[in-house]
Each structure stands twice: as C-alpha cells, then as structure tokens.
Nucleic acid binder design. Structure first.
Length: 639
RNA sequence: GCCGGCAUAGCUCAGCUGGCCAGAGCAGCUGAUUUGUAAUCAGCGGGUCGGGGGUUCGAAUCCCUCUGCCGGCUCCA
C-alpha cells in the first residue's frame, strides 16, 4: 500500500501502482471527469501514470494553470498530427503550451502556409480529436529514439535528443503521431472540443537568429465551444481597444513617415492628457522631496563611455553626431542617469543632504530594430518619468520602500488594481555580462528582495533579466481585459556612482560612495498612455480627459446661453467646449458620443427659461436636468 | 535586422486572372434647413493607386527595389 497526501492535509491509502485518475475517481466521479493532470510530489504527471510510492498529490483541472497547460500542450500534439496528415514530410521543432494556447514550430520545406490553410487544419484537428485517441506514454532508449527520428529525417528532434540523457527519454503517441516529449498529457483527444488556429509567423529554431527560421503555428483550444467563442470575443474587444486605433480616432498622437518610424508625435488632445499625467506625478514627487531638473537631449560620447553604456550599447545605438569643425562626438541621450550623475557630482555633498532625489521627464532616443516598433509601446523616442535617488547605503531600504509606495499609489490612481512585480536578477551562469563587484550586486539584490517582502508585494523572480549595472524590479499590471503589461521600474545601482566617482562626506569627515536608485513609475509617458488607452478603451478618468463635457445647443439661438454655462462651469474648473455647428441635436449627440466625451450638456428653450441644463452621460444616456450648482456638485463627486 | 503579409481620396473599403475617363460611404466645402437625446437634405471639390525603376502596344493590377504599416521571431540601458 502507498500513502497519498492531499492539499487539504488529508491522507489516504491506495494499492501501489494506483493512478491519479483512479485516486480522483475514489473521491468523486465529477473530479475524475474534470482532472487533466496531477502534480505528484511536485511534478506534473499524466493521470494514467501509476504511482508506486508514498506521494503528495494535487489535481489539475481546466481551472488552474497547470491543467490548462496540459490541455494545450496535448492540443499542440494534435495540431502536429493534423499538419503531418495534411502535409506529409513536415519536420517538427518544439510545440509548447503558452499563456493563451500553444504553438508548434514546424519546417514545411518549400511550402508556405497562410491563413487560408487554417480552416483545413482546424477541421483535421477536430476530426482527429473525435477519434478519442489516447496519449500513450512510453520510455524509450536514446538509441531507439535516434533511430526513429533518423528514419523520419527530422533533424530538429535529433538535435533535441542530443541534449537528453539515455534513460530519461519518453515518447508520446496519439493516433498516428509520435513525438519526443516529456509530457504530461491529457488522457485522450476527446476533451478537445473547440479548436482555432490563430496565426502563423516565422520563428528562429531555438530562438537563435543565426539559425533556420521555421514556421510557427499558433492555436488555442477549449473543452467547450462556448469558451472559444468567448475568447474570440475578447480578442475582438482587444482589437477595438487597440491604442493605435483609438489614439488616431481621438487625435491623441500620430506618426509621420517623414518624421520617421517609431517617433510619436503628440497632438493637442494627447498633449493635454500627458500634461495632466505629468503634473499629477510632479506634484506627488515634490511632496516626496524630489527636485525637478532639465538636461540636454544630447551628450558627449565620453559621458556614455564613463557610464559604460557606450561599451554595452554603442554599436546598437544611433551613431554619434559629429560637430563639423571640432570633430566632437555627441550621442542622442539614450537615458538620463549619466546626466543626473553629473548634476550630483557638480559640487561636494554632505551626508546631511542625502538622500538627493533628482527628477526629470527626460526624453530619450534609442535605436530599436525596425521590426520591433509598435504603436506607442515600442518606439525610438520617448519620455521617461525618470528620477535618480542618491543616498547612503543605510538609507537604501527606506528610499526603496518609498518608491514602491509611490509606484503602487500612481498605478492605483489610474485604475490598475492588479499589480504584481518581477524581480530581475543576474544570470548566475553568466556573471561576466554585468559590471560591478560581487559584493555590491549581492547588496542590491538583497535590498530589492527584502523591500518587496516587507510590503507584501506579489512577485516573481527571473534570473538573467537584470540590467547590466544592477538588479531591477519591474511592475506588471493587468488591464481591464486581463492582459499583462510591464510599466514602471525600480533599479538599484552601486555601479554608476563608482564610475562617476560620486561621493559624499560622512559624519567621519571621510568620503563615501552613495548608492543610486533609478526609478520611473509610469516607465515612459508613451507606453503608459498606450496601455492606459487600452485599459479604459479611450474613456479616460474624468480628471484626466481633455474635454470633460460638451455643451450642445439645440439651435443656434441657444449659443449665448451655452456660452454662459461654459463660463460658469469654467469657474469650477470643469472644462469642455460648445458644439456650435448648425446641426441637429441628434447629430451633435452622436458625434460627441463617438468622441467619448464624458458629459453632454444639452441646452434649449426649456433650459434657458428654467436656468437648468439637461445632462447626458456618455454611454448611459439622458440623466435628466439640474441646475449648474447641482451639476457642479454631482460632477465633483465623481472626480 | 529576419520570416510572412499589407499599402487605392482625410478615414473605411470596392476595383476578378493587365485593357472603356479609378469608384462608394463617411469626413470636407457650399447652400438650404434652426432642429429636444446616437447620422436633415441637396450640390461640389478631392487620388502622379506609398516612392523609384522595369516588363508590356497598354500597369492600380506582373517583376525588382526603397519607405511605412501589420503578425511573429530576435532585441530592449
């Protein structure tokens, strides 16, 4: 007999060799029907795999990430089976589950797949799924595995096999398709009811741009058709909210082929939005002791040689600008920190002055590969809500905690309630990529970990994601559609102060080296605006939106009353405009609705006579009439 | 940068396999209408079919190239 422990602490005894499926069944038929995989002693297993020893067990269904991953990974195999059936001779790379669905990298030889082929592949997948083929696990010797794929002439699988040890190789087979795979898989194909091939794109074999580009097919599957429909609706909604579309419609920003790719141009409405964003943060920062500065958009090459950025990014940057006579070399400012280090270093500092917090909405320019550019979220010129805090080592934690507090405060202000953070540390196997001493790195990494634990921030840790000069904490928000976006960042840096030989005079009258914190709660104004547009679908918070209301006169003769309403509201800091076109009221309402202006104030004979205004709320319709005083109060309560 | 796709009026799009002066709706302009909660009516103007080169008797349509955009990959101080 073996002893099985459950997550709730319960224990039960089963015969040795019992499977997770049988254990689930012993608990309830319903569970047995829904379980897709199970963690056995922390490893995700097929539920048909016999358990030979005492174990802890956790069942995975569609409702948890491991269950979905198992389902989608099995779907990737189904996709591969369909592709092999339709296009014999296809070679296969890897086919993992991803956050939403799965993909499979395939090599079709000279054949080019297009979206026209998706329907055919989907039909084949559904046909194969209905056959209720079991996913059969088998352990295989390395020699046999190699022989199998040599016979198939699949160099990709052979290369994968090179990295595996004899004795740990498993195959999975369903229907006519056999794959090298660690597993686990769902019991059989029949639970895959809804299938969609989403897109096709090129992807380098093993992510290496020097290697062959394969065809990557993305797909998603669900146990129920209804869930697929809902997912596709969500994708539609995301398309509607695309900040590139809304940004153009609401005249927030534009791009110009002549100005250049990746160089956003802020239009008046967008500038109004951005200025409010900046003012909000500026005020909050002044409360917290930040000192605003302004630095130039270019700097001498030596500045970036000193900072180490030139060595690290020089080749991959916009190349230096040369002065015509003197032959000096300037770089477009790719970050603000070297300038701020110079500000710190321009005169001696006493420990009594620290921390010194230097803030700047600094516009920076970075070369991004042309294929990387994407709306406002990936650009070549952008403005960071940057600041650098210079402090003593024993002030680091307190400063870090204040920045954490500021960042979460800022994100919440914009309705991002679901905030997590990623701690990016060094790659332990590749430490030569980074500059600075082991001791300083350890200190910096520890500071981040401790501070996030202290405030109870939900974090994930990624090795190898640190900046070259220090570890990072990146904030990740989930928007209204549940999509993740990386926004603000905090970085601890012992290295730049050293490179710029920054000092302060301590209580002991000796020079000491300050620690530096880089931080940007929004990240960049461009990216933040892009994410905010998608989050709120262009319906900005009332305090932020460029026009809070539009006054719609019923006819031209009501314009004088409209003007008086406008000026009265302006006295209460309610901003907007009068739609004085000679158009029907229906037309004015429609146009205002489409511009997503929060309030429409309709004024005609009735209103002029009673000195009231009729209120219509965007997306909600007529709200009845009220006096201006009543409206101001109502409005202010919504701010 | 790489793979694949796309580029026709300010916007959304039609124009099949090369062949009558390149079209529509919306927007714009002009005029009429003075309007009560999501489009008043009529008329008019507007495109070197992304740029350049080529094939052809003839190119928006085929080929090459550049630019930009889209989906990915790689990259992201």
């Amino acid at each position: 007999m073996i002893k099985i422990s459950f997550p709730d602490g319960a224990q039960r005894e089963y015969a040795s060799g019992t499977t997770s499926s049988e254990i689930a069944k012993s608990i309830s038929e319903g569970l047995a029907r829904n379980v897709l995989s199970a963690s056995v002693n922390g490893q995700v297993w097929d539920i048909s795999r016999p358990i030979a020893e005492d174990a802890t067990i956790r069942f995975h269904t569609w409702n948890d990430p491991e269950g979905k991953a198992t389902f989608w990974h099995s779907s990737a195999h189904l996709l591969a089976e369909a592709v092999e059936a339709l296009f014999p001779g296809t070679k296969f790379g890897i086919g993992p589950a991803i956050e939403n669905g799965f993909y499979y990298d395939i090599d079709l030889g000279d054949r080019v797949l297009s979206s026209d082929d998706f329907g055919k592949i989907e039909d084949k997948m559904k046909e194969l799924a209905r056959q209720k083929n079991a996913y059969i696990r088998s352990e295989i010797s390395k020699a046999d595995a190699i022989a199998y794929f040599k016979d198939k002439d699949d160099e990709y699988k052979l290369e994968l096999l090179e990295g595996l040890n004899d004795g740990e190789i498993t195959f999975y087979q369903q229907g006519g398709f056999t794959d090298l795979c660690r597993g686990p898989h769902i019991p059989n194909t029949s639970s895959i009811k809804a299938v969609k091939v989403l897109s096709v794109a090129g992807a380098y074999w093993r992510g290496d741009e020097t290697r062959k580009q394969m065809t990557r097919l993305y797909g998603i599957t669900f146990p129920k058709q209804k869930e697929l429909t809902a997912y596709l609706e969500m994708l539609e909604e995301a398309k509607k909210r695309d900040h590139r579309k809304i940004g153009a419609e609401l005249e927030i920003f534009m791009f110009s082929e002549k100005v250049g790719a990746g160089l956003p141009i802020w239009l008046p409405k967008g500038t109004a939005l951005r200025s409010r964003l900046e003012d909000f943060l500026k005020q909050e920062q002044i409360k917290r002791g930040y000192q605003p500065v302004i630095t130039p958009h270019i700097g001498k090459k030596e500045l970036y040689v000193t900072s180490g950025h030139y060595e690290k990014y020089g080749e991959d940057s916009f190349q230096p600008i040369h002065t015509p006579r003197e032959g000096e070399e300037f770089l477009l400012k790719p970050m603000n920190c070297p300038h701020h280090c110079e500000i710190y270093g321009h005169r001696p500092h006493s420990y009594k002055e620290l921390p010194i917090r230097i803030a700047e909405f600094g516009t920076v320019y970075r070369y991004e590969q042309s294929g990387e550019l994407h709306g406002l979220t990936r650009v070549r010129g952008f403005t960071q809500d940057d600041a650098h805090i210079f402090c003593m080592p024993d002030q680091l934690k307190e400063e870090f905690l204040d920045v954490l507090d500021l960042t979460t405060y800022v994100l919440k202000k914009f309705g991002f309630e679901d905030v997590t953070a990623q701690i990016s540390l060094r790659d332990p196997d590749n430490k030569e990529k980074y500059i600075g001493s082991e001791e300083n790195w350890n200190k910096a990494e520890r500071a981040i970990i401790e501070a996030t634990q202290e405030v109870g921030l939900d974090t994930v840790t990624e090795l190898g994601e640190a900046a070259f000069y220090g570890p990072k904490l990146d904030f990740i928000v989930r928007d209204a559609l549940g999509r993740k976006w990386q926004l603000g960042t905090i970085q601890v840096d012992y290295n730049l102060p050293e490179r710029f030989e920054l000092e302060y005079i301590g209580a002991d009258n000796q020079p000491h080296r300050p620690v530096m914190i880089h931080r940007a709660p929004f990240g960049s104004m461009e990216r933040f605006m892009g994410v905010l547009i998608e989050h709120c679908a262009g319906k900005f918070p009332l305090w932020l939106t460029p026009d809070q209301m539009a006054i719609l006169p019923i006819s031209d003769k009501h314009i004088p009353f409209a003007k008086s309403v406008k000026s009265q509201l302006a006295q209460h800091d309610i901003r907007g405009y009068i739609d004085d076109r000679t158009e029907s009221i229906g037309r004015k309402i429609r146009d205002t609705e489409l511009k997503k202006i929060p309030f429409m104030l309709i004024v005609g004979d009735k209103e002029a006579e009673s000195q009231k205004i009729s209120i219509r709320k965007q997306g909600e319709g007529d709200q009845g009439s009220m006096t201006i005083v009543e409206f101001v109060e109502y409005f202010n309560n919504l701010l």
